[in-house]
Simulated scan of single mutants.
Amino acid sequence: MRLDELLPEWHFRERHTIEIDAYADTVFRAVEDVTWREVPVFRALMAVRFLGRDPAGADARIVASMTKDGFAVLDRLDNELVIGSVTTPAFRATGVLPPDLPSDVFAKFDAPGHLKIGFNFLRRGSTVSTETRVWATDERTRRLFRAYWTVIRAPSGFIRRVWLHAVRERAENEPVFL
């Protein structure tokens, strides 16, 4: 299921794009292979979040690390990778949803006090985008997250742009074998 189907409505959203001259499979391989070392600002912010502990080694893949820390790959399509999580405003995994979360369970989840977070990488022609959407399951949770979003939105957007540049660097420099 596409992000548009999994999280068709949202309270908070951010989208970034980049042009990448590479085949779709090369782009998505790059998305999944980018490491924390290639997006150092993301790694630094995660270390702050984890009180100085490095949540993953510099050479660990970001997507793989995220799926070990409360996120799930919800779908892999020819032109879109969708990742999501259900969490609380304190960002503690709820234990409700497994790492191999079925996308239909994510789509239907609506228990009060939670945030549904979904993001994707989408390729249309040579344009690759990443979009983040957040849906609060109730008004109190929405108000709590709004304060956090006000603080984190700019750094989060910067991380996404650096991540997209790392994807482009990997994809456009991958050897092509004929």
Rank of each mutant, 00 (worst) to 15 (best):
D25Y: 12
P89Q: 04
R124P: 03
H114C: 14
D78F: 13
T127R: 14
A47G: 10
A90Y: 01
A58C: 10
K116A: 12
A136C: 09
S129I: 11
I117A: 14
V162D: 06
G125Q: 03
R124Q: 15
R37D: 14
G118D: 10
V105Q: 15
S126R: 12
D54N: 11
A30H: 04
H114M: 08
A22T: 03
T67H: 00
T127C: 06
A136R: 02
A60R: 14
P112I: 13
V105G: 03
V48P: 07
D69T: 11
A154E: 02
V63P: 04
T141N: 07
G52N: 03
E32C: 14
D100Y: 04
F71H: 10
N120E: 03
T35S: 15
T130P: 01
E139W: 08
P40L: 05
F28V: 11
A22F: 01
A136H: 05
V134D: 06
V82I: 13
T26L: 11
L144I: 05
T35D: 05
S65V: 08
L115I: 00
L74A: 06
N120H: 07
P99Q: 10
P155V: 01
F145K: 04
R124D: 12
R92F: 06
D25I: 11
M66K: 11
G70L: 01
R133N: 04
T67Y: 00
H114W: 02
V86K: 01
K116T: 00
I20N: 00
A72G: 08
L97I: 14
V162L: 10
P112K: 10
L45V: 06
N120L: 09
D104K: 06
S65N: 10
F121N: 12
F109W: 15
R161D: 01
R123E: 04
